[in-house]
């Protein structure tokens, strides 16, 4: 379990993270959703012990993230491609593995597994500089999994990735969940959060505005569902809190129905309702 309590971080006059508190349960995919500059990466940096918080605390299974024991449990996939481009994929993995005291007899099999996991086994001996952006992202993920961490922090892992590699990454995230890993996933793409995450925290200007499952967030902050019915009586549009009942009633009052459109609220709407702005503003 990850427990975050009242985290605060300032960079000069900018209050990057304000009083953030949350709990992430083992085996969950937790999404931190917010626009660029919302405080997602700073929050992750404090949760992984990369930077110190001005105040507040982070607890990883009872451990301080900056402790040596906790570091063996953390896998960080940084937002940038944190790899040595002039080295081969194997050289990169071998180097990062050497920092985690992986026994020699397990090293080969761990590297092989990691490369296979991200679909780069056949490019093991190639220099990273020759990889596509998507392949680099996948290797970026593989480098963080070598030591079999319990907590995997992914900071915008799909930034600048082609759709094929993005889907491969989604599959990898879901596979990691099946392996029992706890995943903390930051993104500014609401589709990703909606598709992958068990729990989502919406963050803006360093503040955690809402926290819950996707369903809970939609119910609490998404607003009403928009229904549009085109029939022999014309086009009827209305908002509904009880879609099935309202739809049945509307259909019963018409002889001929030509088209029905149901627009359920999404996380974009949640963000809009919470902040008055679009997520991508």
């Amino acid at each position: 379990m990850i427990q975050v309590e009242s985290l605060n971080k300032r960079f000069g006059n900018i209050h990057a993270v304000r009083d953030v508190s949350l709990e992430i349960h083992p085996g969950q995919i937790f999404g931190l959703l917010g626009p660029n500059g919302a405080g997602k990466s700073t929050s992750i940096s404090m949760m992984t012990g990369l930077i110190d918080a001005d105040s507040g605390s982070v607890n990883l299974s009872g451990l301080n993230p900056q402790s040596k024991e906790a570091r063996y449990k953390i896998g960080l996939i940084p937002q940038s491609i944190a790899l040595y481009e002039e080295l081969t994929a194997t050289d990169n993995l071998s180097f990062f593995a050497s920092l985690y005291d992986i026994p020699k007899n397990q090293l080969e099999s761990r590297m092989e597994w990691a490369l296979d996991f991200v679909g780069l086994k056949d490019r093991a001996g190639d220099r990273v500089s020759g990889f596509s952006g998507g392949m680099k992202r996948r290797l970026n993920l593989a480098a963080s999994l070598l030591h079999d961490p319990d907590y995997i922090f992914m900071d915008e892992p799909t930034a600048g990735v082609d759709p094929q590699s993005r889907n491969k990454l989604f599959d990898s995230v879901l596979e990691l969940k099946e392996l029992g890993k706890t995943i903390i996933y930051t993104t500014h793409y609401m589709e990703e959060a909606q598709k992958l995450c068990d729990q989502v925290g919406i963050i803006d200007h360093g503040q955690l505005l809402a926290l819950g499952t996707v369903g809970e967030l939609l119910n609490q902050h998404g607003g009403e569902t928009q229904i549009s019915i085109s029939s022999d009586q014309g086009v009827k549009e209305f908002k509904s809190n009880d879609v099935s009942n309202d739809l049945i009633q509307a259909l019963q009052s018409s002889d001929k129905v030509y088209d029905i459109s149901v627009n359920r609220p999404d996380l974009e709407a949640v963000f809009l309702n919470l902040t008055g702005r679009q997520l991508r503003d």
Partner: peptide, 13 residues
């Protein structure tokens, strides 16, 4: 600038 330093800092080193 590449971010590899972040990997090093997060590692048990």
């Amino acid at each position: 600038t590449l971010g590899t330093m972040n990997r090093l800092i997060v590692a048990p080193i």
